[in-house]
Design a protein around this nucleic acid. Structure first.
Lengths: 330, 330
DNA sequence: CTGTTAGCGCTTTCAG
DNA sequence: CTGAAAGCGCTAACAG
């Protein structure tokens, strides 16, 4: 395996010059640069990860941790998040891996921390008071959460700005004249962000509960006219591209947007685009969100010491008009 | 962050003694040992991964790669495999991570190889002539395959010994007197191992095709008496714990084992044990298989240079009699 | 049984 | 714009 010294010798320069050619951290003459690159190419030189981690002060590695990867079916969103993180981290010159966790205890995360192998950790699918977050926090490990689950203390996070997303969605629907809006959701309560977002509007929100699958979405569509006769518009927190709701509406003779206007707020932009079902959405840019998350993680690692000023970032996503919204039927 | 030098000073020994206490690679006096461990504990010392990787010659890290992790739903088997690898690798003093792959091209695996970060790679869900296998092979990276997919050249692998598994299963059924055996399978052909395994027996195999899901399994059960009237026993390559086949047999009045004897060969042992459906199986010890795979990977890494003698290991799994097999109805 | 020491391959100051 | 050299923290040979 060729080392930096080999490259230096072949190119007739010093080792440090090779380093700087690679890192770009100081100006290099065009001639020298070319010679070095040629030598690297010729020798098939690859940097030694361990050596640079050691010399550089911290491992250039971001670790992703997600609970239950093999139990709950991973969604397209999980995939987009991982891809986004990988991309963001790579753009900053770091690498990323997924740390496998199986046991319910701390042993996995303990192994990660004790190995001193990771520069920072990104937690996904975080639960309230997540023990992993506490563990990392207590040991002074850099970490970042995707989402804003309450873990019991302040920490770095990246998330969607749900309040704004909901407000924008409601604005669009009320602008069109809707006042009775159905809220398609998997939860049995209206979440706090929605409550805040809706307070300035003169609207009635009716919670319409559905599981996030075709059967349930379809069932809801069949009974919506009976159960929610006043509702003229739907704001969906569920993924309409895979819900079966819209399709069933068509089947049972509810036409969108003539009878029912509809907007989705938790759909990946390409799901919305590629779905056969044309639904207007406020796009959920999971990939971009995760990408910025990856970049932020690297910045935090590079900054070094554990900071007291926490970092955070909130994403909204733009409105994609796909023609599923019109005035309420008179 | 405390280093080995700090520990040495506090314990009043040399650095190397600390190292050897940790690695156990040479005898240490009981007294010294205790002092060192106490110092480690007091300082909260954690070994620096990068430093030992650098000094030790190769990274103590195994990387798992699996295609499409977020596209095809991961199974319990995938989970068991990952857990097993992690455990086997950990027992050998190494760590393991999952390397995220998303793009169809070589960029992910290229990043892995070029970072020089991994000591060895375990490939899962390998396809015929898998490009990842070729890439790793060409670059002289240590790797191991779970399964025996034909990748176009010899390589290290761990797998089940299907021929023996099938032979054992057929032995059990023929011993009970069955001669017409239905082969419940997701493939539309009888696989070569089965062909070999069955050749010594005087049996007629009838392929019964089903997808690996409740609906399909249930449908097959409903029509089995019409479509396969002669069959008195089933050898299932699919997972009976989740197939819906046995349950539907009960519904439509086919009693097991009185009307139909049945044996599963691709079920995890705990699936078989915990399933409400009591089915005799030849257990698929995915966890143990993977564990040994992890250990083998570490041995290969430790051995250093790319070997010409390939390693492999084949697993069978023992018979678990759960009372689903009896003589054929006369 | 224990200590000393020479690297592992890279990053980064400090000198030109 | 470039080179020399001092480590980073650990492993493993060598020397007691």
């Amino acid at each position: 395996m060729a080392t930096r010294a080999d490259v230096a010798k072949l190119a007739g320069v010093s080792e440090s010059t090779v380093s700087y050619v690679l890192s770009g951290k100081r100006p290099i003459g065009e001639e020298t640069r070319k010679r070095v690159l040629k030598a690297i190419d010729k020798l098939g030189y690859k940097a030694n990860y361990a050596a640079s981690a050691l010399a550089g002060g911290s491992p250039r590695m971001v670790t992703m941790m997600t609970e239950n990867m093999f139990l709950t079916p991973p969604s397209q969103i999980d995939g987009a998040l991982v891809d986004g993180i990988v991309s963001g981290v790579a753009q900053s010159g770091f690498h990323s891996v997924i740390w496998p966790i199986s046991s319910g205890d701390d042993s996995d995360i303990q192994a990660l921390v004790e190995s001193n192998f990771s520069g920072g950790v990104i937690l996904m699918r975080v639960t309230e008071n997540d023990r992993r977050a506490h563990y990392l926090h207590d040991r002074g490990v850099h970490f970042l959460i995707i989402g804003r689950t309450n873990v019991g203390f302040d920490c770095n996070y990246v998330d969607r700005d749900f309040e704004t997303v909901y407000r924008n969605a409601l604005q669009i629907l009320t602008d069109a004249g809707h006042t009775n809006i159905g809220l398609l959701s998997g939860n049995s309560e209206i979440n706090p962000y929605m409550k805040k977002a809706s307070s300035p509007f003169k609207v009635t929100l009716e919670l319409i509960n559905s599981k996030n699958n075709v059967e349930s979405g379809s069932e809801v569509a069949r009974s919506i006219k009976q159960n929610h006769p006043k509702v003229t518009a739907i704001l969906s927190l569920l993924d309409l591209a895979t819900l079966g709701f819209v399709e069933t509406c068509a089947e049972v003779g509810i036409s969108i947007p003539a009878d029912l206007s509809i907007i989705g707020v938790n759909m990946l932009e390409d799901q919305a685009e590629n779905s056969k079902v044309r639904i207007s959405t406020i796009a959920f840019h999971a990939y971009e969100i995760a990408q910025s998350c990856g970049k932020m993680m690297v910045e935090i690692i590079k900054a070094g010491k554990i900071e007291t000023t926490k970092r955070s970032e909130l994403w909204v996503g733009e409105y994609m008009d796909r023609g599923s919204i019109s005035k309420p039927p008179s």
